[in-house]
Every structure is written in structure tokens, then in C-alpha cells.
Design a binder for these strands. Sequence first.
RNA 1: GGGCCCGUAGCUCAGCCAGGACAAGAGCGCCGGCCUUCGGAGCCGGAGGUCCCGGGUUCAAAUCCCGGCGGGCCCGCCA
Length: 652
Amino acid sequence: MTGKVDPVTLTVREMALFFSETFKIPLEQAMWLIQPPREEYGDLSFPLMRYLRGSGYGEREIVETLRGRLWEKGIYYISLSVDRGYLNLRFEESELSRHVFTLVRSGWRPETVKADAPETIVVEHTSANPIHPLHIGHARNTSIGDTLARLFKARGHRVNTRFYIDDVGRQTAIAALGFQILGVDPGSEAKRLGVKPDHLVGWVYAATHTILDILEAKKRLEKADAGERERIQRKIDSLMSTLSRLKDSDPGGYMGKLLDYSSKNDLEDRVQEIMRRYEKGLDPEKSLIRSVVAAVLEGFRETLARIGAEFDSWDWESDIVWSSRVEKLLEKARGSKYYVIHKGAEALNIPAIIEELVKPRPELHGSFKTPKGFEIPPLILVRSDGTTLYTTRDIAYSIYKFEQARADRVVNVIGADQRLSQLQVKLALLGLGYEREARNMIHYDYEIVRLPGRSMSGRRGEYVSLDQLLDEVKSRALSEVEKRNPDMPREWIEDVAEKVTAGATRFALVQVSSKKPITFDLERVLDFKENSGPYLQYTHARASRILEKHGPIDYGSIDYTASYHPERRRLLLLALRYPLVSAKAADDMAPEDLVAYLVKLADIFNSWYPKDSVIHDPDPGARNYKAALVNLVKEVLSEGMKLIGVPPLERM
RNA sequence: GGGCCCGUAGCUCAGCCAGGACAAGAGCGCCGGCCUUCGGAGCCGGAGGUCCCGGGUUCAAAUCCCGGCGGGCCCGCCA
């Protein structure tokens, strides 16, 4: 139900407007300064002392004017006071809850406050290389990206989620070569063998890549001097052991054929040729690579569905190239004053762009955080052999995203290791006259996910796939659900366990600030205690069951004096913060803030409910009040959980 | 060598952007209680801290500035 605003949100908004006008501070700043203080001081507070001095107003004057403004808006059930420089506001709980539950009765539901100026926002995320299965690092990207998209939507923005399929370049060419040697179609072969297509491709890619690296190393060994020989030999030994490990996991008896071919042909030449011909869109390379990548994407979709992520658009990098968008971009670059020849290759003069376009304009410094004292080298656009580079194609793709979606903002969820190259793309856009795009392209960076004790490598086939991980989480979930629901049908248990799995995984990956590297600890994800997705689900299920046992809520018979109870009051006030908390999480692009809030709400609910029975309360007025409160909490939990991708459950 | 990010309880982290009621907050783990009352994936209580170090700004610093130290990442005609 839109158009109706709960009294707490209304109050905060009015206060913010008032302080913003009175102290001449931006409305946004006034909003975030209004914070819930420690409970004994009240429900909302504002640090007056910072602004009072020099404003010409007195404390009393401020308090009385604000009180008048709130009364005008129908917020008369408050008390205001000033204590040690803070202005504190406290709601009178019976009137507050009467207004809230009257709203509920007329159809109001807790939801994120809508943005005053809705935007169209593209969220590009995951965009994993389509040559091996998704792993845990991608899952962090997906969890963050999908949650941002949901937060933006809830905030009232138009959202377009996109997956960039990185099919141009060396990696897909290597995987394609492998399948060409084997003479099988990845999709049908996967079906025949009964393996997931992305896993099949992952193996062929790793095997082909490793063989390629061994051949390359052997070539270098021949030319190497004595000092280098030992190092190269060690490298070869390590590659050989990788190869033998791959042989052990050979899904279709392929290794012999790959080795045989590689002894008779020059693999490197073949890879180069595939790359060149694919970039021109020539068959059979075109259909070969497309069939490999399509098979992987099929596997991706299946995995992504398990954690609740879907995409509006799938963009093939090759389409960007073939559609001549890259060519047009290069034309533009050649006509630019920042076009230079660097070491014999076509390039953009990034240092000059910084010097001339960024430095003189302080308003751009925030959006283009150029490292001080650090020289960013010119950006090479075209290789000497005429093929384009990833970054060049990414510039063209960035423009495409803005145009195609008519986007106001583009948020790219990409690892922190790509900060510099993302900055280069932005600066290139700026230099080529795409200032609006450059300013509104945001690199949402997140740190890597490490596995305890080892590193991941797609080229060597060393990774824990997301599928394996989800299966492990699910087997724990199954036993937990089964233990508690021995009489439920198998199908139901499966379904609930799958949702617990999704909830546990997404929660674990989104609760920590994206700036912190995570060392992935399976035990932590399998721990369904407090501070976990299942904890929220469990709390939601508990609330559902209480309401189920209570039966329909009779709002008409509520006795509002039942609100005079410290713990019920605390729960009510906390639940009513949801609309603004989730709005701020969206604006700050900080899913972890919403997570922290939901856990806090669950904590407060869990500590209240065993002490203050709902269904056993003999007084119908109080009983219905408490049921309405439980229902409010349940709806807030449900809304918030959906935004972070933790499926709410009625029973588990 | 330079740049960016991180450094808060044994462990994992929140608070820092927007300094103020912080004598610093969670979870895990640890210690001790609670299964005859709505779901124990829970509840109640306890121990546990030089907020990396040193300066500075301020009436006020975990928070801002400067300088160190430690860890990660990045500095490609790879993607």
C-alpha cells in the first residue's frame, strides 16, 4: 500500500526537514543525524549542540517550533527534551501503536521508503568467465549484486540486472580447442555422461590449459641457460602432477586424445587462430565457442537459481565486438585529443585526461579517486596484431549499458583487484566525452574469498565449485529439518532444506562488509545459530506458528494500554525503523547494514517471546495487541529477508 | 619502489564516511543456569579489550589529519 506512511517515518522526515531548514544543512545529512539513542534517553535523537551555537536560536525555541510542526502533522503523542546537547524525542506508546495498527488494518504494510527521485539503475554482477563452474568467490559477487538489485527495487528504482559473458579472448579459445580436439559437443556430451555442463567444460579447459603450459615450458627449457633450467623444471614437475590429478578425475576418458593431438600439432598456433577468427565472427570457430559457452551458461543458470539469482539480460562480449560498437569506439578514440601511440600501439593518454579533465575540477575528485603521486600508464586500445583488448571492449560495453537500459547509474560488482582497470575505464569514458556515463558508473568492489590453506585456480581445475558447496550445506540442512519434522513428506523436507541452504549461504556472504577479505569457513556457514540465515528463518517460522495458533487478529478489540510494557515497546519501535533502515541500506549500497538490523530485530523478538505469552494471555485486549505486534515483526522480517535473499519460511 | 584497502575481545566482525550521552558492541568459542506454559536453530547470567603504534587538530577522537608498523591487492599489447 503506497502513499501511507507510518508515524515513525513521518516523524523522522519532519524532523529532518525542520533541522535542514533551520540549520541550513542538507536534508540527507539531517536524516542520518537523527538516530535512535540509548533507550533511556528516548526513541529518536538529534545532536543539537553541533548546530545550536551560532544559529541564533535557543534550545527552547527549537523544541517548541519542532513540537508545533509535528503536531500539525498529527504527531501529538510525543515528548521532547534536551539533555547534554541532544534533542531527544520519545513516543507515547499507546497512541503510537494505535496509529500504527489502525494503518495496518487499512492495508498498510512495512516497506522500504520510496526514493523521491527514482532512477534507472543497471546492476552488472557475477559475470564469471564462462569456462568453468561458479565457485565460492562468484557466490559472493552474486549475493552482493543480487541484494543490491533487490534493495534498489525496494527503494523504488527501476533496476536492470545484467551478466556480461566474457567469451572473447584466450580462455574460451582454449576451452573450445579442447572440445574441437575431442570432437564432441559440450552440451550433448554432458547430457550423455550425466555431468553438469559447466563442470565438464571446466575439466576440459583445465586439462587443455595445463597441457598447453607444459608444452610452453618445455620450449623455454630448451632455450634456457643453466640458472633458469632448474626453476623451469620444477614448474614442469608441478604441471605434470596437476595433469595426473586431472587424469584421475577425467569425466569421459579424454586425456589420451588430448595428449595425442598435442604431440602432433602446435596448440599455441591453434589457440591464436581460434581467437583471431572468433573476433571476426567466422565459423566454425564461432559456433564452436558459442556451443562451449552456452553449455557453461546453462550450468550457471542452474546454480544461480539455487541461490535465488536471476538476470534480466545476458550480454555477449562478442556481440559488442561484432556489432561494430568497438570499432566505433576506436574511431572516436582516434579523433580524440587524448589519442596517442604508445610503444607502437594505439592508446589513450590517461595521465593527460587526469591532468586536464579531473584535476582542475574538484567536484570530480570524489568520483575519480585517482591515486595521488601514482602514474597511471597510457591505456593500450589495440594490440599490434590488430585485435582488441578486454579493457577496450569493456569501455564499449559500458557505453552500451547506459544506452541500452537508458540508465542513470550503472553499478558494476567486480572484485577489488580490478580497481585500477575500472578506474581506467572511467577515465577513458571521461576523456572520450562520456562525462555523464563516467561519473555515474560505480565500481562496487569486494574483496576475494579465500579457502583455508589453499588457493584457487581455474586454469588448473583447482576450485571448490559452488555446486559442491551448496550440496554440503544442504546435507546439513536436510538432517536438521528432518530431525525436527520427522512426519513431514519428503518433498516438503527437500524444499525447506533447499531454502535453508540458500539462506545460510547468502547470509554468510553478505553479512560482512564487502571490503573485508573472507576466508571461507564451511563450518561457519553450516553453523545455523545466531547470526545466520537460518536463525532469521527460524525466528520468522516461530512468529508464523504463534500467529497460526492464535488465529485471526481482531484489531477492533485491541487494548492499547497493553503497550505499556518495556519489551513490547522496544520491539514495536525497532520494527518501525525498518522503512528507513532499508532505505538507507539501499542508498548507502550497504546490504550488511540491513543484515545487522534484521538480526537485532530477531534477537529482541526471541528474548521477548518466552517471557510474555501471546496465546495464553487470558485478556483478549492484550492478546490481540501482542498478536498484532508479532505480525508486524513477522512482516518486517519477511520483507527484509527477501531483500537479502534469505527465503522466509512458515515452518522449518 | 609506488598506489589502494584492511588492522577493534582467543576467533569472525559492527561502530569510522556524517567526532558528542562509548567508563567500547555483537556472534562464535569458554564458564554457569533454563526442556510441566506459544518452536531449545532458543532463553538468562558470567569471564574476556593498550580500539596496531606515535604525534597532531578539537571543549570532545575508535571516528578527522600526519608519520610509522603489520597483512592483502594492484601497478601487462592477460582477462
